[in-house]
Simulated assay, not measured.
Amino acid sequence: MIEEGKKTINMLTVCIDLLTKHSVSKEILKNDFNVSYRTIERYINDAESFFHENGYDIDRITNEEGTSYVLVPNESSDEKITAFLNEPQLLLLTEILASSRILKKEEAHNFINTLQKIAMVECMSPKQQDIITAATGTAMDKYRETKSSLSLKADSTFETIEKLYRAVYSDRKKITVIKLVYTNLNGETKEHTVQPVSMAFDSNHLYVRAIECGDTTKCLIRSYRVDRINSVELFKDAKTDIGDKREYSGLPIPKMMFSTRNSPETIEFICRQPAVGAALDYFPENLKCVFYDKNGNKVDSEEETRPDGYVKMSINDYPEGCMFWFMSQGENVTVLTESVKAKIKHKLEETLKYYSK
């Protein structure tokens, strides 16, 4: 009699093999699980009912090499039944994966191949297959990698992310010390011993935000792009410089990761339509708003500022990243904080010099 836990694992293995390989050998399953042919047949019978409800049947094909179980779409007329991963879902996941660039290119390519197996692309029409092939080619053509050789990477990206999340979120109060082998934008690879405080996704990249060990005076939070991390080592009992990491993990994340400051500052600005909605989306966490109609009277909502009113906004954030958004809005945004105004003016003057040559 097979114990229930082992049976569950065996059943899960059978289902995953059918989803990803579309065909499994009865003989191989028998040898791998160390069970009888009758037990393998019971596994397949149990799996059949699950797959049938989702639009698939399991065919039995016997030849000189033995018996194979093959997963095939059934003739169900129920329109509610869909594939485990249909064509639009597959295309969407491929585009998201390529745009995020979290994984190494090779890892992303292998992952997309696995998704295509789960979607059973080989069972789709030639037209659908052509669409998926073209979309995959386009996604991989635009896939960018770091300048450095990622063959240095000891961990897979999934292992790296798992270790980073464990270091950051296993304890909300206590800092965990980790050692990163990191390749910067210029292709230089160095070791960094850091105290991670949070994870962030920004401008198509995943970052770990951390404080360098020994940086007791500045405690400057630096951002390390995950796809440039070659390996991660966790130190269980290392001494840390920070007593409670909540005061750091609670800080706003600098927009576009452009931050040379230790702490954010209060920035006030006036926002006019149509930029008001964009500002509400861009600064969702710590934005304070006072709404005015076209006559300068206070109103209760953003909708009442339309079409010619404005919103006085205040945020607690890092100016280096925010000012790029301010400049992108042109005359629809007026920055009131003098220090940020000066930075924007200087940036625009330097840019004008460049284009006046």
Score class of each variant (00 low, 15 high):
E3L: 06
M11C: 04
L12T: 03
I16A: 08
L18D: 03
H22N: 15
V24C: 01
V24I: 09
K26V: 00
I28L: 07
N31I: 00
N31P: 03
Y37M: 00
Y37E: 05
E41T: 06
E41C: 03
D46Y: 11
S49R: 14
F50E: 06
D57N: 15
T62H: 06
T62L: 02
E64P: 08
Y69F: 15
V72Q: 13
S76P: 12
K80D: 15
F84E: 07
Q89G: 14
L92W: 13
T94F: 13
I96L: 12
A98Y: 10
R101P: 00
K105P: 03
E107N: 11
E107I: 03
F111H: 08
I112W: 09
N113V: 05
N113P: 00
T114V: 13
T114A: 14
K117G: 08
I118S: 02
V121A: 02
C123T: 14
C123D: 14
S125I: 04
K127S: 12
Q129V: 01
I132D: 10
A135G: 00
M140W: 02
K142G: 05
Y143R: 00
R144F: 04
R144K: 11
T146E: 10
S148A: 15
S149T: 12
L152A: 15
L152W: 11
K153Y: 03
K153A: 13
A154K: 14
E159I: 13
E159K: 11
E162F: 10
E162K: 14
R166T: 12
A167C: 02
K173E: 14
I178Q: 05
I178N: 05
L180D: 03
T183R: 00
T183S: 06
P196L: 01
S198W: 10
S198L: 11
M199Y: 01
F201G: 02
D202Q: 10
L206I: 03
V208G: 01
A210Q: 05
I211Q: 09
D215R: 12
T216H: 15
T216C: 07
C219K: 11
R222W: 06
R225D: 05
I229D: 04
N230S: 09
V232W: 04
E233G: 12
K236Y: 02
A238C: 05
I242T: 13
E247Y: 15
G250D: 09
M256T: 01
T260F: 10
R261T: 03
P264L: 00
I267W: 01
C271R: 00
P274V: 07
P274H: 12
A278I: 09
L280H: 08
Y282K: 02
E285L: 03
L287D: 08
C289P: 09
F291S: 06
F291Y: 15
D293Q: 05
G296C: 14
N297R: 03
V299A: 04
S301Y: 03
E302Q: 13
E304Q: 14
E304S: 11
Y310L: 05
K312C: 06
Y318S: 03
E320V: 08
C322E: 15
F324Y: 14
M327G: 11
Q329K: 05
V333P: 04
T334Y: 08
T334D: 07
V340N: 02
K341V: 11
K343C: 05
K343H: 05
K345S: 06
E349F: 10
Y354Q: 09
Y355A: 02
